[in-house]
Simulated assay, not measured.
Amino acid sequence: MTTVTSGTASRTEGVGPLLRAWREQRRVSQLELALRADSSARHISFIETGRSRPSQEMVLRLAEHLDVPVRERNALLLAAGYAPHYPETPLDDPALEVVRAGIERLIGGFEPYPALVVDAMYDVVAANRGVMALFGGVPESLLTPPLNAVRLTLHPRGLAPRIRNLREWRGHLLEQMRRQIALHRSERLRALYDEVAAFPVPDTAGQEEPAEPVAYFALPMLIEHEGRTLSFVSSISTFNTPMDVTVAELAVETLLPADPATAKYLQTWLS
Rank of each mutant, 00 (worst) to 15 (best):
R42T: 12
Y216I: 08
Q207S: 12
A63D: 04
E140I: 09
A79E: 06
V28E: 05
Y216Q: 08
L33V: 08
D38R: 15
M177K: 01
S39C: 10
L60T: 09
Q56V: 11
S271Q: 11
R167D: 07
L66C: 04
L174M: 09
A21T: 06
D123T: 02
T262Q: 11
R178I: 00
D123M: 01
A251D: 00
A133H: 09
I103W: 05
G227C: 05
E226Q: 15
R179K: 12
L159G: 04
P139Q: 08
P260A: 08
S29F: 13
I107W: 04
L143C: 08
Q180I: 00
R11Y: 15
E104Y: 04
A218T: 03
V252S: 00
T238R: 11
G158C: 02
P260I: 09
G171R: 02
G7A: 10
P90Y: 10
L77G: 13
G102E: 07
T246I: 13
R167H: 10
R23A: 05
R20K: 14
L250Q: 03
H172L: 00
P90D: 11
L219P: 02
A101R: 06
F110V: 05
E187Y: 07
Y122I: 00
A261W: 14
L152Y: 04
A149Y: 10
I163C: 01
S39K: 04
E13S: 12
A197D: 13
I44M: 10
V117D: 02
P84W: 10
V124Y: 07
P213K: 10
R71F: 12
E249D: 12
V98M: 02
L66P: 03
T246S: 04
T12H: 15
E32I: 07
E209F: 02
V252E: 02
P220A: 01
P200M: 03
E226W: 08
V125C: 03
E175M: 01
T229S: 07
H172N: 00
P69L: 04
R36Y: 14
R42S: 08
P54K: 13
T5N: 05
G102H: 13
T12C: 11
R51M: 07
R105I: 02
F239E: 02
A95I: 10
R23F: 12
W269G: 02
R36A: 14
E175Q: 07
S55V: 09
V131C: 08
L255R: 03
A95G: 05
E111P: 10
V59F: 14
L35K: 13
R164E: 13
L152P: 01
S39T: 15
D259I: 12
F239K: 00
Y122A: 03
R26D: 06
P146I: 03
G102Y: 12
T238A: 05
R157W: 07
V28S: 02
T49L: 06
P54T: 12
V245K: 06
S29D: 03
L256V: 11
M132E: 11
L147E: 00
L147W: 09
P112E: 01
P220E: 01
L147I: 14
L78D: 04
F217V: 08
R170C: 02
S55P: 07
